[in-house]
Computed example of a mutant assay.
Amino acid sequence: MTSRLRKFKEAAFGYGFLLPSLAGFSVFLFYPFLKSFYLSLHSMNPRGQIVEFVGFDNFIDILTSDHFYQSLKTTFFFALLTIPACIFIAVCLALLTYKKNKINLIFQLIFASTIAVPIGNASVIWKLLFHPTAGMFNYFLSLFGISPVGWLTNPAYALLSVSMMTVWISIGFTYLLLLSGIKGIPEDLYESAKIDGAGSFSIVRRITLPLLSPVLFFISVISVISALQSFSQINILTEGGPVNSTNVVVYDLYQEAFVNYRFGTGSAQAIILFLIILLFTIIQFRLSERKVHYS
């Protein structure tokens, strides 16, 4: 009896530490999710009042809509433009600046500085850079005799332009994670490889990247989730345009719920997006985790 009582007290003590986090998750995560699922099963008026129960009709309307699949295609293309580029650039920068010296410390500060810039502020700055007449990008193009580009007004360039800004704002966090991972690799491994005659490229390919695989795996998972949930930069830079060329799923969801006041359909779209992200996360764990070296 005494042993059971002691185990109960230890469990209660542990759950006591978890209680604040569980309360936060319940208020800001679990309840909104359950509420969204409840609203997705109903038709609502513009004032947000439930009109009638419609079951899965909202889901059927979305899954049979060409507009939804177009926004989904745009979202996936946006993820392909941003995630590989961000990881590749961050890996290169981390490999070039991981050694301890004064010059590298300055570069580390510069490369990691984007983590301190709010995405809203960054979007406003880049919107000025993309300006068709007063923007710096078109000014530099004019120096080489190249005609101005409609970075945010031309459907051929809009998504690429938003992706450039997203890569820039994401590099700081990705760079810091990779830099920490590289610094955690024992120097003895590098010294042994050099004694055996291994070159720089061979060391990176056979030692650095395999030992960085846990960090790369973590970055890939959170990057996919972040890319599929991108909204702020789309809203500020293009508002889903031009001609829906940057209308990703989250922005389309926002338009559906808070502009068209179709809260039931918007909630159903949010649930579908959650399931898509969950599916991609599971696939990443199944396919990539086996290639991760934890020691």
Rank of each mutant, 00 (worst) to 15 (best):
Ile207Ala: 09
Ile207Ser: 02
Thr208Met: 12
Thr208Val: 15
Thr208Pro: 12
Thr208Asn: 08
Leu209Phe: 14
Leu209Arg: 00
Leu209Pro: 03
Leu209Lys: 04
Pro210Asn: 14
Pro210Val: 10
Leu211Arg: 06
Leu212Tyr: 08
Leu212Glu: 01
Ser213Gly: 05
Ser213Cys: 11
Pro214Thr: 14
Pro214Gly: 06
Pro214Ala: 09
Val215Lys: 04
Val215His: 05
Val215Pro: 01
Leu216Thr: 02
Phe217Tyr: 15
Phe217Met: 08
Ile219Pro: 09
Ser220Gly: 12
Val221Ala: 10
Ile222Gly: 00
Ile222His: 06
Ser223Leu: 07
Val224Lys: 04
Ile225Ser: 14
Ala227Glu: 08
Ala227Leu: 03
Leu228Trp: 15
Leu228Gln: 07
Leu228Ser: 00
Leu228Val: 10
Gln229Leu: 09
Ser230Asp: 12
Ser230Lys: 13
Ser232Asp: 15
Gln233Ser: 15
Gln233Val: 04
Ile234Asn: 05
Ile234Arg: 04
Asn235Ile: 06
Ile236Val: 13
Leu237Asn: 09
Thr238Ser: 01
Thr238Trp: 05
Thr238Val: 05
Gly240Met: 01
Gly241Pro: 03
Gly241Ile: 05
Pro242Ile: 04
Pro242Trp: 02
Val243Gln: 10
Val243Trp: 01
Val243Lys: 09
Asn244Phe: 08
Ser245Gln: 08
Thr246Trp: 01
Thr246Tyr: 03
Thr246Phe: 02
Thr246Leu: 02
Thr246His: 03
